[in-house]
């Protein structure tokens, strides 16, 4: 099980305990794990993270969930990760992200998809498309504009919980779009939120998991999946939703991942739940 899947997990100081559990689950399932250890994080558990099957990579000067520097280091450590993700409030310009990747010796072919999640000021952040996306014709860059502001206006109470999942769904759409765009030589996606919002999906509604899973399946079943490289999962999903995702397709994530996904990046819970299904 798992094949080439490597789990990359960027530790968050406030969730060390739960992430330790998650790492245990991945390791017990036979998956190699790379853990990003934020500088200055004090924990007695560090030797446990470094036990067989897990590589701990020291991260310098970063503390955010989706700090580009951390993710870049982690992804390059694994060498198979093809997707970068960042939070624009940390590194606000996707062009900078891509340039950072390339300037830092990243393989242009490894830059398959650039996800910007939780964008709050999309117009200001993306004044025009980045020009580094195609990188010699070997990569494709997409951007996901998660309209957090719209979420907040639509469902102030639920936005905080659903936003990560919302971003994931958008990411799926972006990837599909990127494939399509690549075919016609356009490596840039603009305002993917138009796609996502076209249906005005009920953000805080329980339909969310149902909409995410088919999107993933669509991506993984795509004939170009292997050509397009790896897909990175993004999302911190609350337990309730994660359980439902698993219930709707127990084990399907990793089973399908074997077909085309060679690197998974996530934080927190989803794979943990998936692995419980698979292991048990």
């Amino acid at each position: 099980m798992g094949g080439d899947v490597t789990v990359i997990c960027a530790l968050a100081p406030e969730y060390v305990y739960r992430q330790w559990e998650a790492v245990n689950g991945w390791r017990n399932a036979g998956l190699p794990v790379v853990v990003g250890w934020p500088t200055g994080l004090e924990s007695d558990l560090r030797p446990c993270f470094a036990s067989p099957g897990t590589t701990v990579v020291e991260q310098s000067g970063a503390s955010g969930w989706f700090d580009l520097e951390r993710l870049t280091t982690l992804a390059r450590h694994v060498k198979t990760a093809r997707v970068l993700a960042t939070r624009p409030d940390i590194i606000p310009d996707p062009r900078h992200c891509a340039s950072h990747w390339l300037d830092d010796g990243g393989d242009p072919a490894g830059l398959s998809l650039l996800l910007t999640n939780e964008v709050t000021q999309t117009e200001e952040l993306l004044p025009h498309p980045p020009d580094v996306g195609d990188a010699g014709g070997r990569g494709a860059v997409g951007a996901v504009l998660a309209p957090a502001r719209w979420l907040a206006e639509t469902d102030p109470g639920g936005a905080e919980l659903t936003r990560p999942l919302w971003g994931e769904w958008l990411a799926c759409q972006a990837l599909l779009q990127a494939r399509s765009a690549r075919t016609v030589g356009n490596n840039w996606l603009w305002h993917v939120d138009d796609v996502a919002l076209g249906s005005r999906s009920p953000v805080a509604d329980s339909h969310w998991p149902a909409s995410v899973l088919p999107a993933w399946r669509q991506i993984l079943a795509h004939p170009q999946a292997s050509r397009l490289g790896d897909v990175v999962y993004l999302g911190g999903v609350i337990d309730k939703i994660a359980r439902r995702m698993v219930a709707e397709g127990p084990g399907t994530y990793l089973a399908e991942a074997d077909a085309g996904v060679r690197a998974c990046l996530l934080y927190n819970r989803v794979l943990n739940h998936v692995h419980r299904q698979v292991v048990s």
Binding site: W20, E21, A22, N24, G25, R27, N28, D44, L45, P47, C48, S51, N272, H275, R276
Partner: peptide, 13 residues
């Protein structure tokens, strides 16, 4: 702990 480490954590630390 829902996902045990199957290692003696105290010894590791």
């Amino acid at each position: 702990v829902s996902q045990p480490s199957y290692r003696l954590t105290l010894v590791d630390v």
